[in-house]
Design a protein around this nucleic acid. Structure first.
Lengths: 145, 145
DNA sequence: TTAAGTGCAAAGGCTTTGCAGCATA
DNA sequence: TATGCTGCAAAGCCTTTGCACTTAA
């Protein structure tokens, strides 16, 4: 007889390991805006033996389970964030690389594409690139000099 | 005495070569939605000796000159399109991978982030993922079956 | 003529995978 | 205890780069 294993709810049938726990915690702490490389760096500082393979495998699992969201920001970098963090979009400064969150009501847009194209939106991302207020000031200064 | 070279206007000081001409033509033909790999495939079918290095170098040049726009759609793939094609955004179907253009007035959003964050937008992208009308129908059928 | 572009092949990042050993439930 | 995760190292992608040759203007 096969005894079924007792999995954690969060992991939906996948065993909870100390690595996954650590990684999910770090992603949560990062509050959006952490990429695989940085996640590995932070994880390794708390657990020297962790490998990049585990980081990537865990990220893929989290994505599949819908625990984290993957976003492509700036120069093709992927950032990960916990899915249940409040819905927000990103401003990326092309001078200093700063990433700023902003609220963005998308419901109008979602309705519009449903009406015009019969398209059912399941995921929405807005990416605005430009100059943050600091860099905009710097730029002005440079132009006057 | 140094004789200045006679560069084409489009290339803004960079010599026009048959490779660049071919590539730009193919990007134009593709009317948005072509990635580096596919661009190389099509280019190679017209000029067997072209190399991937030239494709990537040309794409980087075109980006720098502002001739093409780079967009990240779907699974981290980069697509390229001629910049002067009318401003539009993308709907990506997560079932069949279809990419649909749609008009999307962004001026309100641009004003909002300027007012709220002092952020000056230079580039805006909206990415909506979901089910296109065909796949939405298919999905409904499956659910009733 | 000559600065710049090209092809080739090698190197660089990032991500995935095979395998043997380890650990969770 | 057994399934499935982990670390390691190797392999796989895609993209960039060094070098000698070629070409546009």
């Amino acid at each position: 007889m096969r005894i079924s294993r007792n999995y954690s709810k969060e992991m939906q049938g996948h065993p909870q390991t100390k690595q996954r726990h650590l990684l999910l915690g770090l992603i949560r702490e990062a509050n959006g805006h952490i990429d695989a490389k940085e996640l590995f760096r932070r994880a390794a500082s708390k657990d020297k033996s962790i490998s990049t393979a585990t980081v990537y495998r865990s990220l893929n699992l989290f994505k599949r389970l819908g625990l984290v969201d993957e976003k492509r920001l700036g120069q093709a970098r992927c950032y990960y964030e916990i899915k249940h963090s409040p819905q927000h979009q990103h401003l990326v400064c092309s001078r200093c690389g700063k990433v700023i969150d902003f609220d963005c009501p998308l419901s109008e847009m979602v309705d519009k594409v449903k009406f015009e194209h019969g398209f059912i939106v399941t995921k929405a991302e807005v990416y605005l690139e430009g100059h943050c207020s600091d860099c905009a000031k710097e730029k002005k200064k440079e132009e006057h000099a």
